[in-house]
């Protein structure tokens, strides 16, 4: 491919990927009058008021970000705590059980989980978990377990078996083998799996939407939907755009910091399949 052709294609790709986001950024910095006057105009009408409005709302926007972060972090920890032993045990087994559990996990991993929301909501109401931010971790961990176990299982299976056997003969207990030998070597896989779980929990919509109704407990995704459907943020879109920008920034940071691990995690998933 000629260099100029390629440069053109790359520019097109970046325009397509980043354009909508840059447009949000632009919109968020414009006054309502400027937006109504001319789409894409650059003269006059710049403002930070949209951000002020969003951040001084009730509750302030950073509250949603905080809620999402807390839920995401706890879900990630819970998922890893459950998935690591399960993946270890699965990787050390052969035969039918592994095949069956593996197949079941793959089916669950691709299952459109939105179908489950009603039953999960009923469970939450019966157990008094509705409007409990931390309780969201339970369905989130459950929903992400299949993918997490599959990824970690593949990582366990890649470690040379002699390493663990050697530790076994040295007298290490199961916990000691995991703590000192296996997990340190699986660092990258654990990090990338954790990141995928975190992204899911941060972005999850239908369950958070139905479990949480008190506005100060909302996570980011249902908060955005509520903003979209409410009249608190008046016409036109400056405040919406400021909200989308604020909602995107933490993830952009995460992605830029951990791009390599996220890519590795997805890639492993593909190879596994």
């Amino acid at each position: 491919m000629r260099v100029s052709t390629r440069a053109g294609l790359v520019a097109l790709l970046l325009l397509w990927s980043l354009g909508p986001m840059l447009w949000q950024l632009y919109t968020s910095l414009r006054t309502p009058e400027a937006l109504l006057a001319s789409a894409g105009g650059l003269g006059g009408g710049w403002t930070l008021a949209n951000y002020g409005a969003v951040l001084s709302g009730d509750p302030p926007f950073w509250r949603y970000l905080l809620n999402s972060t807390v839920v995401g972090a706890l879900s990630t920890l819970l998922t890893l705590a459950l998935a690591i032993p399960c993946a270890y045990a699965l990787s050390r087994r052969g035969g039918l059980l592994r095949l069956l559990v593996g197949g079941g996990l793959l089916a669950a991993a691709v299952f459109p989980y939105v179908l489950l929301f009603l039953a999960l909501l009923q469970v939450a109401r019966q157990l008094g978990l509705a409007n409990n931010l931390l309780a969201l971790c339970l369905p989130y961990a459950g929903l992400q377990l299949p993918l997490a176990v599959l990824l970690l299982q593949a990582a366990f299976a890649e470690l040379p078996p002699e390493l663990e056997e050697s530790a076994l003969l040295e007298g290490f207990s199961l916990w000691q083998r995991l703590r000192w030998i296996l997990l340190p070597l699986m660092g990258p896989a654990v990090v990338s799996t954790g990141l995928l779980v975190f992204l899911f929990s941060w972005n999850e919509f239908p369950i958070a939407l139905t479990w949480i109704s008190r506005s100060e407990l909302l996570t980011l995704a249902p908060a955005m939907a509520r903003i979209a459907g409410s009249s608190v943020y008046t016409v036109p879109y400056g405040a919406f755009a400021a909200a989308t920008v604020l909602g995107s920034v933490p993830l952009l940071a995460l992605l830029l910091l951990f791009q390599r691990q996220i890519v590795a995690g997805l890639t492993q998933g593909a190879i596994k399949g």
Partner: peptide
Amino acid sequence: VARSLALLPWALPTTVMALGWRWIFN
């Protein structure tokens, strides 16, 4: 760098960008 940037849309919450697209299609 291009790989990271091209991945951005996937990482963002769907609801966030759905709101963005609503404005783009306005």
